[in-house]
């Protein structure tokens, strides 16, 4: 029993960690900006390319290997600082208040542009940089050898969930974001610079997606098409959790990841559809997701 459950749990949580990072960014952007950003998956892959490039440069320059750990959040931060404000101030801002159909078309167009730009900049080759995985080594649990890096990912995602909740609830900018989410018009009337809040929230969403992409590089590398796959999964997770709900994204990520892992263990033919079967079941019972509702808007 122990030998079956432990690998299931570890694999499920390790999977959930990466899914959560990208889905929580999507859900955060939706809750604040009320824009369903189809291009969100591209930020994941751009983060992955940036981390792989920076990591390869660190190794190529003969710098200490532990610097490759620092290169992961650093590359995500660089992507967020450069790409976030640029896109929010141009395309996304233009889409505020427009119908959902227009928003989806605009962000889908952006997704296509970003995918092509990645091909132009990074080419069509795959990139691998696994120094962090090598440095951390492996650990045996329940008769199965795991990468220590997988366990670190679980801890990181948990820390990020707590950190995000603390950020929203206990920092000035977090409270401003929460206020804008609760009521945009009243926030504006009270003097909150909502445009600035939008830009910060969007950039934070980009950072979370890029961080997810960066963290996947040491164990899986990056190749063209990563963004599209991730985007679809992130949407499923965000929908299951309830769009705009951080804790919803976390719970949904665990459910989806466990569904995938269970499928791989017991019904491999259902591996690819497992997340979407879960989504279908949840939305049939709770159309607004596990944590969502038709009227309330809370973050």
């Amino acid at each position: 029993m122990f030998e079956t459950i432990v690998p299931l749990l570890i694999d499920g949580l390790a999977n959930a960690a990466l899914i959560f990072l990208v889905a929580v960014g999507l859900t955060l952007v939706f809750s604040v900006l009320r824009v369903l950003n189809v291009a969100h998956g591209s930020f994941y892959s751009i983060g992955a390319y940036a981390a792989a490039s920076l990591g390869l440069w660190v190794v190529g320059a003969g710098l200490p290997g532990w610097l490759t750990f620092a290169s992961l959040p650093l590359s995500a931060a660089l992507v967020a600082v450069i790409v976030g404000p640029l896109i929010e101030r141009t395309l996304i801002r233009w889409a505020y208040g427009k119908s959902e159909a227009v928003q989806i078309l605009v962000t889908f167009g952006l997704f296509l542009i970003l995918e092509d730009l990645q091909r132009i900049v990074f080419g069509v080759d795959s990139f691998y940089e696994d120094t962090p995985v090598q440095l951390l080594g492996s650990i045996e649990i329940g008769g199965v050898v795991y990468l220590t890096y997988q366990l670190v990912l679980i801890l990181l995602a948990a820390a990020l969930l707590v950190g995000l909740k603390l950020f929203i609830g206990h920092t000035r900018i977090g409270k401003l974001i929460a206020a804008v989410v609760a009521d945009r018009e009243i926030s504006q009337a009270m003097g909150i610079n909502t445009n600035r809040v939008f830009m910060i929230a969007f950039s934070l969403g980009v950072f979370l997606a890029a961080l997810g992409g960066a963290l996947t590089v040491p164990q899986a590398g990056v190749s063209p098409g990563l963004g599209a796959d991730t985007m679809v999964l992130a949407f499923a997770v965000a929908a299951i959790g309830g769009l705009g709900k951080i804790e919803g994204a976390a719970v949904a990520a665990v459910i989806v990841a466990l569904a995938r892992v269970l499928a791989i263990y017991f019904a491999p033919e259902l591996d690819a559809v497992a997340p979407y079967l879960v989504m279908l079941l949840v939305l049939l019972v709770r159309p607004y997701g596990l944590f969502g509702s038709a009227t309330t808007r809370k973050i």
């Binding site: 570890i10 199965v144 795991y146 997988q150 899986a220 990563l226 796959d229 995938r260 791989i264 263990y265």
Partner: peptide, 8 residues
């Protein structure tokens, strides 16, 4: 891309 669960 990732095969960690399959490897387990």
């Amino acid at each position: 891309g990732t095969y960690q669960t399959e490897i387990s």
